[in-house]
Design a protein around this nucleic acid. Structure first.
Lengths: 237, 237
DNA sequence: GAGTCTAGGAGGCTAGGCCAGTAGGCCAGT
DNA sequence: ACTGGCCTACTGGCCTAGCCTCCTAGACTC
């Protein structure tokens, strides 16, 4: 009867990388010096020396910042701060505070409600099959006494796929990772799997009928239901 | 009467970085080999040799992939593919296809409608001031014959800030960059700045009244209005 | 069989060097 | 006075070579 599915995925202690630390320091430097969009960072050689690391390592930090859209490294010119340096701020806040449960749920809700609506308009037979399959899996899991976590995941993935929007899907992936990182896997399963399953069915029905508004509403209610318990712990104010 | 504003901004030829190319190749490799979550990439030394680059450069590519959440590099073990490798797929699609105007507008709309609603609930006096300032700027720009682009940007930033959600804000930043990259700056100003300004005012009023639903509706209509013209060019089907 | 130790392979980081692009000053030609 | 060519100092791009730390499988104990 192995509950082999979830080997309690410990979150693998993350070893600190030097380049990550450098990112933070560079960001701090930018703030200190009140550098704005268009301003240049010190030259690599100089910066590396100031930070006490090799150029190679600094280069990694710069690549990371570039990927995150904070800077723009130009050959022969130097590293230039991009527009919207707010990214840097937001990013740091997110990293530092981490668990922003309410906000994350809020964002998730926003996207999923929309996705449900779109799914109702755009779903194919294929999509409906996947959704049904997810419901089946969840039902079985619950009957066996589980929490239906796997089925739940499948369901939300299927709905997301049915909405046919790569951009929204990408944003959901982002949030999914935040949720994971913030270790709120429990989010979806506060202990009332049956009620959760019920609301899934409502959503699926609306999507099948092509009832966009209905699907959106059902998804909204579902997320509210599911989040309540998890949230009330932190959101008692 | 210089039309000095737009000196035909050439898009600064982007010099290719080796690490970017490596990312693509690694992603391709993953697909070829049908590697899934949990699988290991070849060792750095080996991979570097196969790709014909130095370890230092390869390290940059790995950092980039790590930042993007595609892999997870573990000291002593190797680079492991993360769960949800779909990120990689989505990412590549986004990079390759680039202009996904309709989807981007859709995502933007989803977020901004929600943000407007939240702004109505959470705005402070400070926020209202910023919103008013943005409206003022836009009004002036239009009176001087401009398109009010700057004011428009300020307005949306102010509303976003007023919603007090770092997570949603981060998602907006993301989309903003996509919009920029896809060179659809014109999105907001299809030629009817006045009407756009009008709808801005409606939104601002609703936010001031604390009318959440009203603000959300107004924002929805605004984006529809503003997107229409830009979209119809591509979305004629 | 269950712990313990250890060699080898993996990534982390550094040092130092060469190549390539950029920007700005200088100078000759117009 | 302006233009274009050229030189040079400076900046990032990338490489080689090497040492360190960490992880883990397998040999070695008890």
């Amino acid at each position: 009867m192995a509950e082999v599915k979830k080997p309690r995925q410990f979150a693998k202690v993350q070893r600190p990388r030097l380049y990550e630390q450098l990112m933070t320091q560079i960001l701090a430097y930018v703030e200190e010096e009140k550098l704005g969009p268009g301003d240049h960072l010190p030259a690599e050689r100089e910066l590396a020396e100031q930070l006490g690391v090799s150029r190679a390592t600094l280069a990694q930090a710069l690549v990371a910042l570039e990927v995150l859209g904070v800077i723009d490294v130009q050959h022969g010119t130097g590293a230039v701060l991009r527009y919207r340096p707010s990214v840097a701020t937001v990013l740091r806040e997110l990293r530092e505070h981490e668990s922003r449960l309410p906000e994350i749920v809020e964002a998730r809700s926003t996207l999923e409600v929309k996705l449900a609506g779109l799914a109702a308009e755009r779903r194919t037979e294929e999509d409906l099959k996947k959704i049904d399959h997810a419901l089946l899996v969840m039902t079985e899991e619950i009957q066996e006494g589980g929490r239906g976590a796997h089925g739940d995941e499948l369901f939300h993935e299927a709905v997301t796929a049915a909405a046919k929007s790569a951009v929204l899907q990408k944003l959901m992936t982002f949030i999914a990772e935040m949720v994971l990182e913030t270790r709120i896997e429990s989010l979806g399963q506060p202990g009332r799997p049956e009620r959760s399953l019920e609301s899934h069915k409502k959503i699926a029905d609306a999507i099948r009928r092509g009832d966009s508004a209905g699907a959106a509403n059902a998804m909204g209610e579902h997320i509210e239901l599911v989040s309540d318990v998890a949230l009330l712990k932190e959101d008692l104010d």
